[in-house]
Simulated assay, not measured.
Amino acid sequence: MGASLILGILALVSGLGLRYWINRRRFYRRSPTGAQGFSSYEKSVIVTNAERVGKLVAIVLIIFGVLFLWSYSRQKKAKEKTSQNIGIQNPL
């Protein structure tokens, strides 16, 4: 397996997992009225900003994961094409 395939899968799974974890925490923090419950204002600001940064990191990981997987597929197609061209030029 290629390094780009492994990096792509790891980045994609990490990004999706991070988004899931942040959204799950946000969901369980909500009250029946839909308001988020925090013990203090400072905690509210810190957690909200940390979640924003975490979501941006998750989006970047997902984008890199997709790009790595796309790169792997392009490399694989190029390798297959060159091996077909060599087989056509030099038949056994």
Rank of each mutant, 00 (worst) to 15 (best):
A11F: 14
K77G: 08
R29W: 02
I6D: 03
S40P: 11
L5S: 08
I59R: 05
V13M: 05
R19S: 12
L5D: 08
N23F: 06
F68Q: 12
T48A: 05
G2M: 05
I46F: 06
I22R: 06
F38M: 07
A3I: 14
L92S: 11
K55G: 02
K79W: 08
P32G: 12
I59W: 13
I6S: 09
R74W: 07
Y28E: 15
A11P: 11
G87R: 13
V60E: 04
G87K: 14
A3L: 12
A78D: 14
L5H: 05
R29Q: 15
I62A: 06
V47K: 11
T33M: 07
E51T: 01
I88Q: 10
E80Y: 05
E51Q: 09
R24P: 04
S40D: 06
V13E: 06
V13R: 00
P32K: 05
G37K: 13
A50K: 12
A78L: 06
L10A: 15
A35T: 14
F27S: 06
G87V: 00
P91M: 00
K81Y: 04
K81M: 06
N23H: 08
E80C: 01
V47Q: 15
R24W: 14
W21G: 01
I63N: 08
L7H: 10
F68T: 11
A78W: 01
V53D: 03
Y72I: 01
G2R: 07
L67M: 14
R19H: 09
S40I: 03
P32Q: 05
Q75C: 08
V53M: 09
G37A: 09
S73P: 02
I9S: 02
E42A: 15
V66A: 04
P32N: 11
L67H: 05
P91Q: 00
S83G: 01
I59G: 11
Q36N: 05
G34P: 14
R29P: 06
F68P: 10
G15V: 09
V60H: 02
V53L: 13
Q89I: 07
E42F: 07
F64T: 01
G34R: 07
G87P: 04
V45D: 09
L10V: 15
W21V: 13
K43M: 10
Y72N: 14
T82E: 14
G17R: 04
K79L: 13
G15H: 03
L56C: 04
I22A: 03
S4F: 06
S40Q: 01
L7A: 10
L18A: 13
R25P: 07
V47E: 14
S73N: 06
S44Q: 14
I9Q: 01
L18I: 15
N90H: 07
K55M: 15
N85H: 04
N49W: 08
S40G: 03
W70D: 11
G37I: 11
A78E: 13
I22S: 05
V13G: 01
S39Y: 06
G54H: 04
G65T: 00
F68E: 08
I6N: 05
A35Y: 12
K43D: 12
I9N: 01
R30H: 03
F68I: 05
L69F: 02
Y28D: 13
F38I: 09
